[in-house]
Design a protein around this nucleic acid. Structure first.
Length: 709
RNA sequence: GGCGAGGUAGCUCAGCUGGUUAGAGCGCAGGAUUCAUAAUCCUGAGGUCGGGAGUUCAAGUCUCCCUCUCGCUACCA
């Protein structure tokens, strides 16, 4: 279950400094980590929470080139933007580092050297790769263009042809050209280091499946999420392969080996080490001790937890642990509570389509909304994609805030404060007997919230928290001090009720801090309590369990104040207007999307057209191609001959439905083997925007084998 | 086709190692109440737990088959 050790290191996935982060990222890897970390701090644990920008990789250099700026300008921009946005949203990193920092380079290089010197962990492989003599460097696949061997598209990239969508390797390209110099690159041999992941398969399986490491219990595998273990075992089952950990590139961390100029560490090797270098830098800056970081990484009384999105599971559960184990001095993570993805109004976030909203955009849009940070945090927690994909909707956002935070919690706090002022002049009354049982039951409810956080069940935890507020409302209703007051203003029942209600509100003000830090502060202020601080939840549990009160008789609370102004407020529509504009924007995108017809291809000549020999034909038989999902093997009658061809239409047509179907066949297409079956020609189909297919056929009954001109 | 995760009330989701009449929030219907932000509280309706077969004294929970959704992957000239 949760951690038992006193020291805890928590990481959130390093954002790639090539763009802004959207709400899905926040809900996936940053918000859950922040809740967990804040809770642990309030429980008095020694917690360190690190993150930072991942600033290497070819995507950044390519973009820099396209925009005519330096990679440095890009990474600076997004490093600062993301760091600043996280801070505004209350993500309480102890340190936000960056992988371009010298200390990170040093750390990654040391790590590499250590594994290299150890022997057996790496192997060197030499392959032929294209080299641009003018620019004096090897070319990443994306930097090479040429003619696609499959479709003859002339602008195909070295890794993929964007015309026919096939994956390529650079050496397959006909007439390759370097995009740097525009000249023909030469094939040159180059060597790279590979990490022997395959050597680590055996212990990884035990570690993940049973939670044991070198025969010792390491963690409880039942506390890991199902989809995390499932995906890891799936990988292990298919066998681990050595993975390249270096690249020929000039943007990144130089490989610390003599003669390895223009080689850098591949980004996936470099990035997770960023967690380590962030810790190191923090230790130097904040503790003045260059070795302080070891307490968190290399000491058995510390626990490591990685928060990530599901796209990162393999790196954090297989690759990075293998690196750490290979190194030998490091602790392995006790859990990797990966979240799934958050969609936005039913569809994936997509920057290019304008679908979704980025974190900084949200803050900007709602700058007039006082509770914007906590309103967002709440909506994302309530709807967190903990075990499956979830969907963010504006309507939910409004409902969660108004119905749960404002109506239930905010109104409850207000009731208690108003009643205290009304009957006791704003001072906590003194109950005739300490309601020990009442305190005890409040304690149990509060503890439950903590238990759920320890289990990484944040959604359930915040609902358990709201349950405390709901319980408070019910309790007030049951006692109804306002009724008692009418007949007996001095009744001890009123004192006890308000006393206990104040204790309950105090509990809420503490427990809510991991989730909604801004609101927690406001609540504490209203109650005249000090803000929650390190260890304060632990202290609270201590007091409650021994029957002590949190707010003592005579304590003066503040004046009533509205904690949550509603979004859907009939007197003030300003926040609702912002949301309506967002909804309209989405509706417009949906509208524009509908007729998604592909744009016209380049003009051709009549001669080009006459090269095509299209014939009328009829399907004689059809069967599924074994082992392929979309393929049908067709026998067609073209009159003068019968042919076999393979067509990717199995998703739409059952074999026996299409026997006898008239079709048009491109008859002079070069034969090609597909899934082991030779295809001689191609059936012409019309395709709509959803990718649905229909046959193109002559009208009525038509003879077969005749040309289409 | 392979692998992974899912398919539980109108909607969004909980249900751990199988065990009494399957739960929560929202929505809906009825009622109570007025300290409070037209808030709150109570009661109720509503589910053959995707379908089928099996194991078991007992299955939403285990096994097998099928089906649908999402993701990765292969193949789609």
């Amino acid at each position: 279950m949760g951690s038992t050790k006193n020291r805890l290191l928590v990481t959130s996935a390093l954002p790639y400094a090539n763009g802004a982060l959207h709400l899905g990222h926040l809900a996936g890897a940053y918000l859950p980590a922040d809740i967990y970390v804040r809770y642990k701090r309030l429980m008095g644990k020694d917690v360190l929470f690190v993150c930072g920008s991942d600033e290497h990789g070819a995507a950044i250099t390519i973009r820099a080139k396209k925009e005519g700026i330096s990679p440095k300008e890009i990474i600076d921009k997004y490093h600062n933007l993301n760091k600043d946005t996280f801070q505004k949203l209350g993500i309480s990193f102890d340190f936000y580092h960056r992988t371009s920092a010298p200390l990170h380079h040093e750390t990654a290089q040391e790590f590499f050297k250590k594994l290299l010197d150890k022997g057996g962990e790496f192997e060197e492989r030499t392959t032929d790769q294209y080299y641009d003599a003018e620019y004096n460097q090897f070319l990443a696949d994306r930097y090479i263009k040429g003619t696609c061997p499959h479709c003859e598209y002339e602008e195909a990239f070295g890794d993929q042809c964007e015309n026919c969508g096939r994956d390529l390797s650079p050496t397959e390209l006909i007439k390759p050209v370097s995009t740097l110099s525009g000249k023909k690159p030469e094939l040159k041999s180059t060597s790279h280091w590979y990490f022997r992941l395959d050597n680590h398969e055996e212990w990884l399986r035990k570690w993940i499946q049973e939670g044991t490491l070198e025969g010792q219990a390491h963690h409880d595998p039942r506390s890991w999420k199902k989809h995390v273990i499932g995906q890891c075992l799936s990988w292990l089952d298919s066998g681990l392969q050595p993975r390249a950990i270096t690249r020929d590139l000039d943007w990144g961390i130089p490989v610390p080996v003599e003669g390895a100029s223009n080689k850098v560490l591949y980004v996936w090797f470099d990035a997770p080490i960023g967690y380590i270098s962030a810790t190191r830098q923090w230790g130097i800056d904040k503790k003045g001790d260059p070795d302080y970081w070891k307490k968190y990484w290399q000491s058995p009384d510390s626990e490591l937890v990685h928060f990530i999105g599901k796209d990162n599971i393999v790196f954090h559960c297989i690759v990075f642990p293998a690196m750490l184990k290979a190194h030998g001095s490091y602790q392995l993570p006790v859990n990797v509570p990966a979240n799934q993805f958050l969609n936005f109004e039913g569809q994936k976030f997509s920057k290019s389509r304008g679908w979704g909203i980025e974190q900084h955009e949200y803050l900007e849009l709602f700058k007039s909304f006082p509770n914007k940070e906590d309103a967002l945090r709440y909506a994302l927690i309530r709807n967190m994609p903990e075990n499956r994909d979830a969907d963010f909707k504006w309507d939910d956002f409004v409902d969660y805030h108004d119905k749960e935070l404002a109506d239930n919690l905010g109104n409850y706090l207000n009731r208690v404060i108003v009643l205290t002022h009304k009957y006791f002049d704003g001072k906590c009354p003194s109950p005739e007997n300490m309601p020990v049982e009442g305190l005890r039951s409040l304690f149990e409810k509060a503890e439950e919230v903590g238990r759920l956080i320890e289990k990484f069940s944040f959604k359930a935890a915040i609902m358990a928290l709201m349950e405390i507020s709901s319980f408070g409302n019910t309790y007030l209703q049951d006692v109804s001090p306002w009724k008692i007051f009418k007949r007996d203003p001095d009744s001890p029942l009123i004192k006890e009720c308000i006393f206990l209600s104040l204790q309950n509100v105090a509990i809420l003000s503490q427990l809510i801090k991991p989730f909604l830090p801004g609101i927690a502060k406001k609540m504490a202020d209203l109650l005249g309590l000090p803000a929650a601080s390190e260890g304060s939840i632990a202290d609270m549990f201590e007091k409650l369990s021994s029957g002590e009160s949190l707010i003592n008789p005579g304590h003066k609370i503040g004046d009533p104040e509205i904690l949550f102004a509603k979004i859907d407020d009939r007197k003030d529509r300003s926040i609702m207007d912002i949301i309506d504009i967002q909804k309209e924007k989405l509706a417009k995108i949906m509208e524009e999307q509908k007729p998604k017809q592909p744009s016209l291809k380049d003009r051709i000549t009549y001669d080009d057209f006459t090269k095509l020999d299209i014939r009328t034909a009829r399907i004689l038989s059809a069967e599924k191609v074994k082992g392929a999902d979309k393929l049908l093997k067709l026998e067609v009658d073209m009159g003068f001959e019968k042919r076999t061809l393979v067509s990717g239409i199995a998703k739409f047509f059952k074999p026996d439905e299409i026997v006898g179907q008239q079709v048009l066949v491109l008859a002079n297409l070069a034969p090609r083997k597909i899934r082991g079956v030779e295809s001689n020609g191609m059936v012409l189909m019309a395709e709509n925007e959803e990718g649905k297919l229909t046959f193109v056929e002559p009208k009525g009954s038509w003879d077969i084998g005749f040309p289409v001109n």
